[in-house]
Design a protein around this nucleic acid. Structure first.
Lengths: 213, 213
DNA sequence: ATCTAATGTTTACGATGTCAACAACAAAGT
DNA sequence: ACTTTGTTGTTGACATCGTAAACATTAGAT
């Protein structure tokens, strides 16, 4: 039984070879992650979902970790994209841009919790083994740095070590995201992710801002 | 071969029964976690470490998750304890107390990264199945709430919804902790955890504080 | 001393990550 | 056109894992 795609109408499986298994595996992995959760994300299940045999993924990924790393990298790209989109709505207002960045970060996290967890979680043991992962993450951080630098120039943010200010901003949105994603906020959760993000970024801005008269 | 502890000099295994397996299992789990990392934390390895058979843990924990939940709960207790200790050094200064709380939080995270990850990570799928876990976590949060309320009364923190202010504080220290623990800070890491914690809490205080003249 | 509940042990099953040996195809050289 | 060769999938196997069932040993109550 050579397991050809039954209909093949949607151009799914043309024959013995898949055509674009790598992409299909990534898609299947992400789908599994979002629908069944991280525990269901097994290499064999991914292969099943993609309609190939259990060992097929090894032609495209060294091991499970490598698959996960690729999924995470995709996540960072998507998040960066979402953040970039958010900033374009405030072409002339640096502080609005920074605000939008923070909201987009939290929004992505609570919109794609499983993806977010793979991006930052410990399933990937040695991140340094996947340099392109780090690069993708760095890109998101770069957006933040840029936005804060703009705010400094415009006088919305006090002078000081740019990286340290950015770290504070990153920490607060990342912390809220992590707490939301791990549903650690029982009582507060019901106030709505959006409202909490507003509250938290508000405090952040007061902290970053110059002395008020 | 009935597998009695060879020397039994240290009172480890007195006979067929262990005496305090539950505690021994928790200790073994924690040890494995800190020395070999989360991937090495398998039920069988824990049992091996404790010198019992693979199925013995099931007499004390329903399944692996329950063991993990117990480890996490222990972690929350330890963290709460560390935080409480930190506050006692500032009996008369609410702001100093809040500051110490934050530093203790970050300190615990970077001092026990694996433990911290179990406490907040998603290895425990359904946290609501372990109410005492939530209770232990709540206790740490209560410390924060109390400290911030004190600061409000003393005029160090602006008036406003206590829970939302606390969430901001929690978010920023938790975010920094998570980023540190997941070694996501490549360049910044070398500035030292202590310094970063100082920086971040500084920004937080400026944000929480009343309008400055 | 005997009975009983608690605590450990053996053995077994299905699922998983991964590897080695094999099979089918695509592209390139002749 | 025919062969060669490298790429991509498949099969089958192995060790390990979580977990359950059946059994053994012990501590404590009676």
């Amino acid at each position: 039984m050579t397991r050809r795609a039954a209909g093949s109408g949607a151009g799914k499986r043309r024959g013995y070879h898949h055509g674009d298994l790598r992409r299909a595996l990534l898609a299947a992995a992400l789908r599994l992650l979002e629908t069944e959760g991280p525990r269901a994300l097994t290499l064999r299940a991914v292969a099943r979902r993609a309609g190939v045999s259990q060992a097929a993924p090894y032609r495209h990924f060294a091991d499970k970790q490598a698959l996960l790393a690729a999924v995470a990298e995709e996540g960072f790209r998507a998040m960066t994209e979402a953040m970039r989109r958010a900033t374009t709505e405030h072409p002339d207002n640096p502080l609005g841009r920074l605000h939008a960045l923070g909201l987009a970060y939290v929004g992505f996290a609570s919109g794609h919790p499983s993806h977010f967890r793979v991006m930052f979680g410990r399933e990937i043991a040695d991140r340094s083994a996947y340099p392109s992962l780090g690069a993708a993450a760095q890109e998101a951080f770069a957006l933040l740095l840029e936005a804060i630098a703009d705010c400094q120039r415009a006088g919305f943010v006090r002078p000081g070590d740019l990286e340290e200010l950015a770290l504070s901003a990153w920490s607060i949105v990342h912390g809220l995201s992590a707490l939301l994603v791990d549903s650690q906020l029982h009582g507060l959760q019901e106030k709505g992710q959006e409202h909490l993000a507003q509250t938290v970024t508000q405090i952040l801005f007061l902290g970053l801002g110059p002395r008020q008269p």
